[in-house]
Amino acid sequence: MEVKKEAKTNDKRTEAYRMGLVVLILLAALTIGEYFIGSIAVGWLAPLWGIAILKAVLIMRDYMHFSRLFGEGEEEHS
């Protein structure tokens, strides 16, 4: 029973680490994208704003766990 619980905790932890890495890769890709848009299409502001908002949403949702604000305890870590 205890072993089963520990295995489940390990699975959840591995999944949470993996999710963090996926978000980092997405953020890196978006940053490189905005760097090239900024270098090539000078004055094209709308896509840069779009990318910035997308990055902010990713960080707030997956790193800051904004949804926790509407939950109860400390145990609901993704």
Partner: peptide, 19 residues
């Protein structure tokens, strides 16, 4: 890039202590 990477490690640290 440095700041984004720092956020990744901070998230990892928080996840680690939670588990």
């Amino acid at each position: 890039a440095i700041l984004l990477a720092s956020s990744f490690f901070m998230n990892r640290a928080e996840t680690a202590i939670a588990h």
